[in-house]
Computed example of a mutant assay.
Amino acid sequence: MNIDTQAVQTGLEWDTRTGALSIPIYQSATFRHPGLGQSTGFDYSRSGNPTRLALEQGIARMDGGSRGFAFSSGMAAITSLLLLFQEGDHLVVTEDLYGGTCRLFDRIFTRFGLSFSYVDTTDREEVLAAITPSTKALFVETLTNPLLKFADIPALSTICHERGLLLIADNTFLTPYLLRPLERGADITVYSATKYLSGHNDTVAGLAVVRDPQLAEQVYFHQNSAGAVLGPQDSWLVIRGMKTLGVRLDRQQENALKIARWLQRHPQVTRVHYPGLEEHPDHDLIRRHARGFGAMIAFEVESHSLVEQLLLRTQLISFAESLGGVETLMTFPEGQTHADIPPELRARLGINDVLLRLSVGIENVDDLIDDLNQAFNKRETTV
């Protein structure tokens, strides 16, 4: 079954009694036992809730894993996965990743004895050089935030599995609709479901999918014990959003390519990062492994004054920090999403004071280009 069909069908098998096409929202903290020592399969909603389970089964099918897990946010999902490790363990990590993930690693989990090395995970030799006897996992973003470098999951999985390491792939930007990392050798995928999977900027959620059933049992133990689970109302919202994932991403990618090409030609734009452009260094690699290039664009303008001008003077495009929804959003990574990355690392990576990140929505692309054009051309009037 095609993945877009799988997404639409999520939850349809649940209410066989009434035939409801929309999974009910089981807004219950606890469940009555049918008898002593008996259970319906649901006892307490932290341990399991029918609406959440429908979402978890749906994302597991879409990703090709043994089991899925729904958390209260993407960061809660990553936090629960880090509970797989113990004091003294070391992880090799994508260097240009989301600043909140970097903050979680460096300012929280280092206090509990974990250590992290940040490398360019598109460079096999850098990855190999960073592995130590205490390394237990490689954590990558399949398409990095914000510079849009692509991780070669099959090559990285070979490195990991030859050395007994876990490969954890944050697949938020591409989603299983465009890339299924578990099929290419990853052990765990993780998502900020706030973004493309829910797709409407109306809920905060995180998802993880595990390939190996025994490893999935460990993840469930931590999910249940730590309790950062997704509530039934938000689970329903993510299910509803996932049903239109395919049609939304098709439109968003189409828009993104047209906008990226327009930005390339603009005299005040000095650089465009979008893997759908033939000039992108990972363009051919993504074409081999993924079904598309996503709908995120990063671009640099010729001066910092243009950054504020564009952020504040666009009329359709909102100045906001999230991404992946139907509305087009723009943000300034250096001062917002990636402010927690050390300044010297930001400078080396190219996350600078002229870089903007654009999350392309489903609006008419001509209207979006017109909005960008008028923001570029607007000038303060002097009296």
Rank of each mutant, 00 (worst) to 15 (best):
V272S: 04
L245M: 08
F109L: 15
V119D: 01
G324M: 01
D4H: 12
G325R: 01
K378P: 13
Y177P: 00
S22E: 14
P343D: 10
Y274D: 04
F173E: 04
A70G: 14
I259H: 00
G324R: 03
W236V: 01
M1W: 13
L167M: 04
F85D: 02
E87L: 00
N373Y: 11
S322H: 02
A151P: 05
D120Q: 12
R288D: 13
V92A: 01
F42V: 06
V238A: 01
R357P: 03
Q38P: 01
R357E: 04
L358G: 00
I3L: 15
L277S: 03
S322G: 06
L310Y: 09
Q38Y: 10
V301R: 03
T142I: 13
T314E: 02
H283C: 09
I25Q: 13
T337H: 03
L372I: 10
I153L: 14
Q27P: 02
S73D: 03
G37P: 07
K149M: 14
P281W: 09
S66Q: 07
D96A: 10
D212F: 10
Y196G: 00
S80V: 11
Y191E: 00
F109V: 06
A295P: 04
N373D: 15
K243E: 00
E302H: 14
L345N: 06
H304T: 15
E95M: 08
M75P: 01
Y274C: 07
E13N: 09
A20G: 08
G64E: 03
C102I: 13
D366H: 15
L21K: 12
T135W: 06
I369A: 06
T94M: 13
F173G: 02
S28N: 13
Y26M: 12
Q218D: 14
G324A: 11
R46Q: 06
A375D: 11
R107H: 15
Q6N: 13
A137R: 03
V383G: 12
V383T: 14
Q57T: 05
L83N: 05
I78S: 07
R184K: 14
G325V: 06
R379G: 14
R251G: 00
G335M: 11
A228V: 10
F139V: 12
D284Y: 10
D187K: 07
G231H: 05
E254T: 08
G199R: 08
N224H: 09
T51Q: 00
D170F: 05
F293V: 02
Q264D: 15
L215S: 08
D123M: 08
S198C: 12
T101N: 12
S225A: 14
F376K: 09
M330E: 02
D96Y: 07
F332N: 00
A130S: 14
H33Y: 11
